[in-house]
Amino acid sequence: MSSESEEKLKTAQQEEYHNLVNRIKPKPPVLKNCLWAFVVGGLICVIGQLILNYLISMGINKVDAGSLTAIIMIFMGALFTGIGVYDDLGQKAGAGSIVPITGFANAIVASAMEFKREGYIFGVGARIFSIAGPTLVFGFVASVLIGLIKLAFR
C-alpha cells in the first residue's frame, strides 16, 4: 500500500471512531446547566445592581459608582475563592459564575493561591496571570485597536 492510501485509511478510521465516540459520549445536561447559569449569573448581577444603587443614592457620580461596584464585586469574588466556595459554585453554575466579573477575580485568585508553594515572586507573582493574563491582553489590544480606528475615522 502506498503511504498516501495508508494515510487515507487512517483518516477514515479516525473519522469512524470519532463518530462512535460522539454516539457514546454522554451529553452535558444543557437545559439544567443553562438554568443554573441564568439564575446564578442573574443573581450576581443583582448584587452588583444593589451595590450600584446604594452608591448612587450616597451621591457618588455614576462613573465612579460603576468603578467602585466593579472593585467591590472583585473583592467578593476574591474572598469567596479564598474561603474555598467559588469553585463549588462554579461546578453547578458554569458560565453563570465565570462570565460575571467575580469569575475574572476567581481566575486570578485561584491561579495565585495555587502557586503559593512555589514562592511569592515566581509562584504567586508570575502565575497570578495564567488565566487572567490572556483576558487582559485581548482586552487591551482590542481597546487600543478601537481607539486607533476611531482616530482614523474621526
Binding site: 444543557v30 443553562c34 447559569a37 442573574g42 448581577c45 443583582v46 458560565a95
Partner: peptide, 17 residues
C-alpha cells in the same frame, strides 16, 4: 439586572456545552 445578566451568562453556557 437579573434578566439581562442571566441571559448574558446563558450565552456563555451554550458556548461551553
Amino acid at each position: 439586572a437579573f434578566l439581562i445578566g442571566g441571559c448574558i451568562c446563558v450565552i456563555g453556557q451554550l458556548a461551553m456545552d
